[in-house]
Write a protein that binds this DNA or RNA. Structure first.
Lengths: 235, 235
DNA sequence: GTCTATACCACGATAGAC
DNA sequence: GTCTATCGTGGTATAGAC
């Protein structure tokens, strides 16, 4: 009856989503059982299957609930930039910063537990076979198309194929870094903790790197030319 | 008795490792059950626990069996380069090419099913909590230290902290790309299949990007300077 | 429509016989 | 070293209460 009631006690579906999100972030997908989720949400085990059909579909819903607004914000950021540019090409730094800044805002929003979600997102890209491959394209297609077009206009000398490659590399670096997988903390033991937990600091370091890669000299068109570095191999 | 016997029919331990590797590559860790592995290997279910202790330890062993030689080759490549340079700094392109080429050789070796293994490796980095975090540092520490030192010498103007950041980004891009996670095939639908399955082609595109990022202008030292792109935020 | 109780089969792990 | 039997827990399916 009372509207406030629905705010204080969200319905079963959303309580499951909230509980699942937190647990997925803390422990990963596989380590989180439906029994943990339903216990935390205070609902019956079978409620997951009733509302979402399966654990996989629950995972998908957890993602799309955050990815929708995040990517919408990314599109809005680009709209704003392009409107103020009035048809002139944008700067690559501007474009990438627009893309990253939406993630930064999410990461800094404690109410949305955004930092943990970005970490989840980073993981999801590396998921072997299954959930992710099915719905990630739908979530990202529009964003990638718009940003790719903006970058193509900003970098007219970069062929389309090469731009796709570099977008690929950029996605990898972003997913690993903003995603907080902390490859270096894994692979070696160099401490960047203080800065690495500060999203703005991450972007400050990441942005010049990405732009440097994006605007790098183009590779040779055919085969690897043994010009300088590969000389010694041939004897 | 006969030595040939042991070659034709490897012992239980190795048959499990071979079967596990293939199945992990095809389906991921969690989707692969011990019962599938032991069935394929033609051994009893309990043999896995007897020889490896647990599924996690089996996964670790599958990795270290390949990572050991791979990283040893990376170190040997760097040794060779530095020997022929006789104390002079190397070129960043040379250094990164040495690192990547070992992976390329592995990927091209059908007998070792290297391509699939690199895909496994890429996934492993994104694994949330568990197996990987424990043994990856040991596997990579020496390699990262040596390559980092070589790059520091090659790029004396890049501060140590910034170099660590850029190594971080480079690892991300490599893991995603050489690992074949195919972010772009996931995130949008741009076809690079023909080239993406050719390791040399991947490196040809990847190398200029990484060097471009590595040698990019340094970020501002303190805070994000609102120089150009972030101007509109502050009004 | 929404929720609950409960049963089902596959999983990883282990103990103990051989 | 290898096997069988068994345990606790996982995701899932369904019958039936509200």
């Amino acid at each position: 009856m009372n509207r406030i009631d629905t705010q204080l006690a969200p319905d079963t579906k959303e309580r499951i989503l909230d509980a699942a999100e937190v647990l997925f972030m803390e422990q990963g997908f596989e380590a989180t059982s439906l029994r943990m989720i339903t216990a935390r949400a205070g609902v019956n085990l079978a409620a997951v299957n009733y509302h979402f059909g399966s654990k996989e579909d629950l995972i998908k819903t957890v993602f799309s609930r955050r990815l929708g607004p995040l990517n919408a914000e990314r599109l809005a950021m680009l709209d704003r930039l392009e409107a103020s540019a009035r048809g002139r090409p944008l700067d690559p730094t501007q474009i990438l910063e627009a893309f990253l800044s939406a993630g930064v805002r999410l990461a800094r929003d404690p109410a949305r537990r955004g930092g943990a979600f970005l970490r989840l997102l980073g993981r999801a890209f590396a998921e072997p076979s299954g959930y992710v491959r099915e719905f990630m394209p739908d979530q990202y297609e529009a964003v990638v198309a718009r940003y790719k077009a903006a970058l193509a206009k900003a970098l007219p000398h970069v062929p389309d194929r090469e731009l796709v490659w570099r977008l690929h590399f950029i996605f990898g670096a972003i997913a690993y870094t903003l995603g907080g997988t902390d490859v270096l903390k894994l692979a070696c033991r160099y401490p960047l903790e203080d800065e690495a937990n500060n999203p703005e600091a991450v972007v400050r370091h990441l942005l010049p790197f990405l732009v440097g890669g994006l605007t790098a000299p183009l590779p040779d068109a055919s085969g690897v030319r043994k010009s300088r570095s590969a000389r010694s191999k041939q004897g």
